[in-house]
Design a protein around this nucleic acid. Structure first.
Lengths: 168, 168
DNA sequence: TTGGAATGTCAACAAGGCTGACATAAACTG
DNA sequence: CAGTTTATGTCAGCCTTGTTGACATTCCAA
């Protein structure tokens, strides 16, 4: 893995990165993302949902009462796409949509108990995979992992990312 | 970012991982993957291709002469899906399919000059994003990043991953 | 020679992106 | 108050990319 840290501890010095090393990182992202989504995908398929539903459930749990517009920003899809997903989740009683108090144009989204239950099941297997990977890789690796991922995001998404409640 | 590494420096000891920390890692994967694919997606859209084409081009470049079956394993899609993509790439003169010598049922896949050119353009922007993230995060972070990603893969995919030529 | 493997192809279907157009209600602005 | 903007929902249609099932071809190997 040739750390090749350059001179001092602190620094951004030059970091030699061959095309091959970078390609390997690209492939690592590709294969890891497959693993990352594999477990929840199975549960979703059993219940007749897809990844789009998972994403909505995840962020509604994380930001209870979020508006549709905020969710659109986070997910980066069109309102038509999101609406299709939300409609089924609401019809199926997993998500509740409440008209806003201050601004009655806005809809605030919440998980119902049933929605929270499915979200928990999905999240559980995914967290378990993360936990196992974190443990296998060790604490320093975890810190590095998150640094690189954060640096890889588009700035606007990084802002969203950092705005989400940090639990640790 | 409160790394919270647990007691001593060295160890795998117990690594306390709250659900919130794990969720944050999940979100990091989600947002980072968006960034990861954003740049090539733009180039692909200009040329009327999609991510599936990119994946095929990437692995054909990495494994020149690979068979369709091998590619199916790596990509994890059905032969019908892959075939649709390969057909357009072959029709457009980006990929060449040569009948095998030893086993004439097999098709060996190669990029044409034109295909290599597009792959290079796609790869370039993606490598540039990786390079920037790696540099921003620092060498130790890169090592950790790859450790966690590798631990996150399904074993079978990890085997594929490790079989790919390592440039560093 | 026959079975099975590797490949290709056709058809149909679904999820989940997209655009464009249009509707409604509420809020804001002058 | 009139007009505009904002937030949301909805309809219709299109595309990519995944799926399954069925079937043809080719050819290695027993």
């Amino acid at each position: 893995m040739t750390d090749h840290a350059g001179p001092g501890a602190g620094g951004e010095s030059l970091l030699y990165l061959t095309d091959e090393q970078l390609r390997k990182g690209i492939e690592a992202m590709f294969f890891a993302y497959r693993g990352f989504t594999a477990d929840p995908d199975r549960i979703l398929a059993e219940n007749g949902y897809g990844r789009a539903h998972h994403r909505a459930l995840h962020f509604i749990r994380r930001c209870p009462g979020t508006t549709v517009n905020n969710l659109l920003d986070i997910l980066g899809v069109t309102k038509q796409s999101l609406n299709r997903v939300l409609r089924t989740l609401i019809e199926d009683g997993l998500v509740e949509s409440r008209v806003g108090n201050r601004d009655k144009r806005e809809r605030h989204l919440y998980l119902t108990d049933k929605g929270a239950e499915l979200e928990t099941r999905l999240s559980e297997v995914q967290r378990e995979r993360m936990r196992a990977a974190y443990r296998a890789a060790g604490p320093e690796a975890v810190a590095g992992f998150r640094k690189v991922l954060e640096a890889m995001m588009d700035p606007q998404l990084r802002a969203h990312f950092n705005r989400l409640k940090e639990g640790g």
